[in-house]
Design a binder for these strands. Sequence first.
DNA 1: TGGAAGATACCTCTGCCAGAGGTATCTTGA
DNA 2: TCAAGATACCTCTGGCAGAGGTATCTTCCA
Lengths: 214, 214
Amino acid sequence: MVYRALTPTAQAILGFLSFRSRSGYEIRQAAQRTAGLVWGVSDGQLYPQLHDLHARGLIEPDGAPEGPKSRQRWRLTDAGREALQAWLREPAAPPVLRDEGLLKLLFVDEVGLDVARDLLERRRAGLVALRESVLSLVPGAERGGPDAETGLTGPTLVRAFGLDFLEMSIAWCDQALAQLGRRRRGGNDGADAGDHQASQRAYAGSGPLSAAPS
Amino acid sequence: MVYRALTPTAQAILGFLSFRSRSGYEIRQAAQRTAGLVWGVSDGQLYPQLHDLHARGLIEPDGAPEGPKSRQRWRLTDAGREALQAWLREPAAPPVLRDEGLLKLLFVDEVGLDVARDLLERRRAGLVALRESVLSLVPGAERGGPDAETGLTGPTLVRAFGLDFLEMSIAWCDQALAQLGRRRRGGNDGADAGDHQASQRAYAGSGPLSAAPS
DNA sequence: TGGAAGATACCTCTGCCAGAGGTATCTTGA
DNA sequence: TCAAGATACCTCTGGCAGAGGTATCTTCCA
């Protein structure tokens, strides 16, 4: 494993350590807050990757295991910073969407339009809840980088993408519901956010795209 | 494996066989055309899953291995159709986005705005190419469900989502590029690029793409 | 003072899954 | 007739998420 190319998750860890040193737990939290929508980092990956990065000499312990619960802080080495910068300059793999809800919708003719409506409403409710949680966080708190005054840091860009994605997805749900509603009863599609939210908290499970009550 | 719950990929296979019987290769092609954007099905999953579904009695061979290259056709059994319908009625897992490009963009302050511009331009080009390929497919080709005449089948909905997603992503690239371009001409960013690593970065503290309301 | 309950921090194991790489078969065409 | 390429299926490796576990620390209430 040591001489294999770094995985994107490993690079993400380097990225989160480039700002300052952190413990594994702090990396996980920062990842969920800032990258949760576009790149999940799970426990099962995080800790092994930290040890691998250490073995490669890309990160090093920042002091002895300290503080509450013997948390170990890690910091980037010079080699680690170089590896991060090299990776950033390489072209990226195309985005991949993994969406079980849309997969079900694809086959929904098999069971009828009521099921389609139900899927869409649960989906909408989950997306709205996620958007609320994203909006409730202070955008400026992300900043502090070199161009805090303009708000053009990476986190700001990524946050904007996340919100655009959620808006677009919600709007698509509304359109689809309007079409299905029109087909069934003939034109009642004016329902708005409040109604749909009342319908059900579908995305109860935690996931990279959810509000993640982990 | 036989008594474990079916994976979404296995359910997708059942779904593709619900229209008509197909060989593994045909399933792969149909999946790529209609679900490629939202749910990939790779060779390494497809063929083992077909055998597993057969072992469970959810699909069965449709005639002997025939035609060119001894391709085996499979069809849904009654139990398979029931399993598919039951799965469609369950709530879906939340969507997951896996986007290495946005992950890089998150850390792009580490290397400067030229790299950000480059990433965004490559991203845009890839998205535009993808959109072209989606647009070039005949929308009705994959149908065969109960309401083919109205165009409101699952494949049509999913295709619309894919196109919306691509449009939104392209528009976001344009906005981001416009902002970066404006900054460059207005200020002295090119010169600072190298300084970024020296300064302390702090977007760690409390910011957010995902709230944890726990 | 003490102990139950919960949060924190890290770890391990299992299985889904993509992608690389392989084999065998069929078609094309020079 | 034989090479080259497309087709159809298969296997192996390793990234990765999620469940579940342990140990530590804090809080709070009796």
